[in-house]
Amino acid sequence: MSQRETTCLVVDDSAVIRKVARRIIEDIGYAVIEAEDGDTALGLCAESMPDLILLDWNMPNRDGYAFLQELRQSEAGRRPKVVFCTTENDVGAIARALRGGADEYIMKPFDRDILTAKLEQVGLSIRASTDIS
């Protein structure tokens, strides 16, 4: 029986950001699914809860913060690690995201080193064979 893949849901209304994030996250050993807004992301979580969610803030059809609040209300929705990844780069936004239940916060623009470091910080294992230096 094959082992279930560890999954990451990338939620961002920018196709470019989703593509960049997908490439990095797949490289470190995760299966990636994508959503372009908060509503779609909630639907995907209802079908199958991911292990990690990389979450933009400003999106149509339910923004990242509203999505997070809704997600964290359910028992299953408290399980995934949530990393905000946003251009909202001020202290107030970061503090609000953490109060809302985010585990980490990435200020855009980001690079591969930052993303992998943040994933390690929230306790996710990075595939050892991946050399990011």
Binding site: L98, Y105, I106, I114, A117, Q121
Partner: peptide, 8 residues
């Protein structure tokens, strides 16, 4: 500040 530093 994003390389290695926990956001908290």
């Amino acid at each position: 500040v994003q390389r290695g530093l926990p956001v908290q």
